[in-house]
Design a protein around this nucleic acid. Structure first.
Lengths: 214, 214
DNA sequence: TAGATTGTTAATCGATTAACAATC
DNA sequence: TAGATTGTTAATCGATTAACAATC
């Protein structure tokens, strides 16, 4: 499903709400915007405004039904059915992330993002597996991505290979990319990139180690 | 050094400017806010406004001296001298990040964030090394952190150990934390946390794979 | 019913953009 | 000097917060 024109600031908070609902489920059947906000680190008014973009999920005087809201949020985020993902670049970081995500998918029944294919240029790796997941040659991207209905990808290749990797993925049909390479990727407007740039984050944090407190 | 009350939105852009300056250095000795902005993905007026918070670094009619601006930004971000970092949790992700950061420090002379200590609970790992970096027991945090003047830390422990790890680090003197555990850490106001929460990012991206284009 | 909490509107706050005088 | 570009002020834009009528 598709909701247009909703700010990314709103979208970023939805997975946090989802996490809170998962914690609360079983303990409480209903939750108020006050309680949900407190646990998510968001003001109650903002919780209500965020949810109101997508529909009327609450009951006045009562709050939100935990399981119902969880279902609705999962639908909104396309997490109500399995979503296939690829990872390109099986170096030490890629290898670690592959195991991390695979475990998560195995353990948590609500985590529907399934890593189904790994890609690398190294012929020594191609044909092998990480846990259950096969490693293909990057030249196989145009074939495997449509075949496996892969919509989401993680890039963990070196900086100088990131843009071409990105291009191949997008041409094969990938719609969203989590990029660990320290490069700003150039993508069409209908493709979403999230940058997980370790060194930018560390450099930002460095600013605060000197601050004498605001 | 410390500048108070400057928005985090501004601080986040400074490392991006720093990266652009590094790319341009050698090719050009001067850069305009227009060119710097174009490469950083930011409007020129915003580049000028961001820099103006910290001083007058440019020359009218000319632009900014690349090397001078780079030096100034590095001073502002506390990246003008080595900054010691620790990593807690030497699982597969921690191991990969340790290698990643260590390599970066070795290769790039301007990358001053040095990983000097690893910590884990596993007695089988304690006493060992990843590349050059020693692995200590987490019980050693109170001794090693002050001894090595560690100000910055990466947390890659399981979710249920993250808060206590965080507490130990903060009590030992750590001022900024990059947290990979899927937990909201509770810290004093003078400690800065950056969350690198893989599953929240993937869940956010999932929203966009369904969108029909805005 | 009385108390609680929603969804929504209006007010506030903060960040970005546009415009321009100052000046290299 | 003439052209270019800064630093800064005012205008705009967008996101958050406060308030409250509607209603469970």
């Amino acid at each position: 499903l598709a909701w247009k024109g909703i700010s990314d600031a709103v979208i970023r908070r939805l997975p946090v709400y989802l996490r809170v609902l998962e914690e609360v489920k079983g303990k409480e059947s209903c939750i108020s915007s006050h309680e949900l906000g407190k646990r998510a680190g968001v003001r109650p008014a903002l919780v209500r405004k965020d949810l109101a973009w997508f529909g009327e999920f609450g009951k006045q005087g009562v709050g939100y039904d935990v399981e119902f809201l969880q279902d609705e949020l999962r639908k909104i985020l396309n997490l109500d059915e399995p979503l296939h993902m690829a990872l390109v670049g099986v170096g030490s970081l890629g290898h670690a992330l592959a195991r991390y995500n695979w475990r998560r998918f195995q353990i948590d029944p609500l985590f529907t993002i399934k890593l189904v294919a790994l890609f690398d240029v190294n012929p020594g790796l191609v044909g092998g597996y990480v846990d259950d997941i096969p490693i293909y040659s990057v030249s196989e991207i145009p074939r495997i991505v449509p075949e496996e209905d892969i919509r989401l990808a993680i890039i963990t290749v070196p900086a100088d290979a990131a843009q071409e990797t990105c291009k191949a993925l997008v041409e094969a049909g990938v719609k969203a990319i989590l990029n660990f390479a320290p490069v700003t990727l150039d993508v069409p407007k209908d493709v979403q990139v999230a940058n997980a740039d370790l060194s930018l984050e560390l450099q930002r944090l460095a600013y605060y180690i000197g601050a004498e407190q605001l």
